Computed example of a mutant assay.
Amino acid sequence: MPLIDESDLHAYADGQLDPSRRAEVEAYLAAHPEAAGWVGDWRRQADELHAAFDGVLNEAVPLRALPPRLQGRAAAPAARAAGWRMALAASLASLVAGGAAGWLARGQAGDLAVLTPPAERFARDALASHVVYAPEVRHPVEVAASDEAHLVAWLSKRLGAPLRVPDLRAEGFHLIGGRLGVAEGGPSAMLMYEADNGSRISLQLRHMAPGTADAAFRLERLPGTGDSHGTAAFYWVDRDLGFALAGPLERGALLALAQAVYRQYQDD
């Protein structure tokens, strides 16, 4: 049987193989039910992403709803709207590809599964949430910062752990609010911050499985999405809590913010 590797399986899942190669992959999948299950999972994941986000990708950007400081940067509305949709599409596509790549190890047989660590999967979920919600003009959050007490009580209850809202004003970002999210089938908390220039970052937290080992800062990155840095997230695990700080910042600036969050949680 011809050698079938990870790239062939991804191309098959995406419908990108020529007929002869597709027949070879189908024969391989018939002999390797586990690999066939992975391909089915990737297709379902792609279908779910399309169902969830195609409406967003086709949505017109309501420029008249933008604050004056953002309208000044919208000199070419059609181009900016198209660029945002392309950026979101690229980001979501890269998450699917990146998540799927972590499930397979390259090898001669091409049939060894490697599970992506839970903290890394959480970081990818956090990046997906950030690229969806950060561009929102009217509804980036569910509860505004003006109702912080309710925000903290609500998210702490859903998270199953006390939530602390880090103060990042010294680093140039103020809280605008938060929302409930989902990671690994359970609840996560998202806190959204904004700088004076309109740049947004999000801090997302989830309760990890009991006994999850602490993990130092690690970087998960999306490809460039229309800016010079792309969107990235520093993530770590501390005392059964997973943290992911995401935003379109250069590595050093994002790390400094992550360290500020870490220090404030160590003060508990």
Rank of each mutant, 00 (worst) to 15 (best):
E194L: 11
R218D: 00
E220A: 14
G226N: 14
R206M: 13
L219A: 12
H207F: 11
T225K: 00
S202A: 11
R221N: 01
A216F: 02
G224K: 01
I201L: 09
P223L: 01
D214Q: 15
A195E: 08
D227N: 14
T212V: 15
L205F: 08
G226I: 10
D196E: 10
D227L: 14
E194H: 05
S202Y: 02
D214T: 04
A215Q: 15
L219R: 14
D227T: 11
I201F: 10
Q204L: 13
A209G: 01
A215L: 15
R218H: 13
A195N: 09
D196Y: 04
E220F: 01
R221E: 13
A213W: 07
S202D: 00
M208E: 05
N197Y: 08
G226E: 05
R200E: 02
T225R: 00
G211I: 15
S199Y: 06
T212N: 13
P223C: 02
P223K: 12
A216S: 06
E194A: 12
R206N: 08
D196G: 12
Q204H: 14
N197L: 12
P210H: 12
G224D: 06
E194F: 03
R200T: 04
A195R: 15
R206G: 06
R221S: 13
L219H: 05
P223I: 11
